[in-house]
Design a protein around this nucleic acid. Structure first.
Lengths: 232, 232
DNA sequence: CAGTTTTGCTACAGTTTTGTGACGCAATCC
DNA sequence: GGATTGCGTCACAAAACTGTAGCAAAACTG
């Protein structure tokens, strides 16, 4: 029933390091994917679309920077936050400036605790649409500064909860959200709300998004959750 | 006195953090000012009037909150947007609700990239009506030099508070302002005013702006605030 | 195909949020 | 000094939104 553990992809060539990371992430209820070189990392990232990628800077063959660039170039993986692992001496301007597209970096030797904290923070952050920004996916747009949402150019009439729900969906189009995850992100963190309430609000959002000759942009994934999805 | 590069003031006592921030902001073509304690921060803020202040929550002597309060109390620095840096455990309701007057906050550990993005967004968003200017939005005009406001050419009869309120709205038409934000910008800072008072004044402003066959230019965003908006 | 699980949806009672007129108080004007 | 103007709070009504229950429909299971 619990389907809400985040997945992390670890790309690291040193076996010992990899084991350590894997162990610790699993202990923290992450699902883990591992890759021992850049090539494999890219493949897994595309296939499984993890919530976070831990990427070693030094890799045989394809370097960490290169992997990062490619991930950020691909629409399928662009949104995935990347945490770069760099050894002490390598902490050069490239990394510090984050030119590579990585979202954050940690210098070895790091404390596992800090790494986990950062990882969690990054995942949490990666969902919501940043305040003040305008985000568009297909024919849907939300303008957070003006607190408005449009479909195909026409203004939608949304209640507060519907608006927040749409914001979460828009933060990562195509991603499947379990009801738990939606509850966590859309509702105030202290209230205990029935899971089915999510369904009702999804229904209301659907109605608000409905337009003649337009497809329902919210996909139901049975026994898993919902996603904002206009593919196929 | 607006010029090309925006200036950011960083107030942070940990040298490493400070360096990292400074480096990254400079790399992004910000001009940077740095202060290692609250006292110095206040001084620099007054003297140089930066476009944005990055403020660490934990500071020796003068705490971040206190610095924030003082900045917001001083007319010279009141309008400067403040981005608060808080450690994980400190992420309490005080910060969340931004009662302190800060305009945004980021929880450590943060990703540098996100911080930069937020900083940029905040600067973009903050542009109060400058004194001496005449600003027009749709059929509404305010002449700050003469301290007069018009709708469709006819002079409006506004009380002082209504005038200030309209000025804030005119500074960024379309933007949603929370009641807190309005309180902060319209009312003197030493006063403790009920949030609902904002509603009353918005109501009065609405009445003053009313004209036959004209739409109400103020939009209510339930559970969020108000905005000046004549679209749709 | 019958049985089971999961989702869609409507109705509704309850709650939260907003609009606004009334009132008392203080400052300002004449 | 008396009148006027503007202010902040309150209280109440109206409006908007919310969560849950319950049942029908749909999707799976074997």
């Amino acid at each position: 029933m619990k389907h809400s553990e985040p997945t992390v992809l670890i790309v690291e060539d040193e076996a010992a390091q990899l084991e350590l990371l894997k162990f610790n992430f699993q202990k923290q209820d992450f699902r883990t994917l591992v890759a021992e070189d850049g090539e494999e990392g890219l493949l897994l990232a595309q296939e499984y679309h993890p919530d976070l990628i831990i990427l070693d800077w030094m890799l045989p063959e394809l370097s960490g920077i290169e992997v990062c660039r490619q991930l950020k170039r691909n629409d399928k993986t662009r949104e995935i936050p990347i945490l770069m692992l760099t050894a002490r001496g390598e902490e050069n301007d490239k990394v510090r400036g984050l030119d590579t597209g990585a979202d954050d970096y940690v210098v070895k030797p790091y404390s596992v605790k800090e790494l986990l904290a950062r990882a969690r923070a990054m995942i949490r952050r990666s969902n919501p649409v940043r305040s003040g920004e305008v985000v568009t996916y297909a024919d849907i747009t939300i303008d957070t500064e003006q607190h408005k949402a449009y479909r195909d150019g026409t203004l939608l009439k949304l209640g507060p909860t519907e608006y927040r729900l749409l914001s979460v969906f828009m933060g990562r189009p195509g991603r499947v959200w379990s009801r738990d995850q939606l509850l966590e992100r859309v509702w105030p963190h202290d209230l205990d709300i029935d899971l089915r309430t999510v369904d009702v609000h999804v229904g209301r959002l659907r109605k608000a998004l409905k337009q003649p000759d337009k497809r329902d942009p919210i996909r139901t994934i049975r026994a898993a959750g919902y996603s904002l999805d206009l593919e196929d």
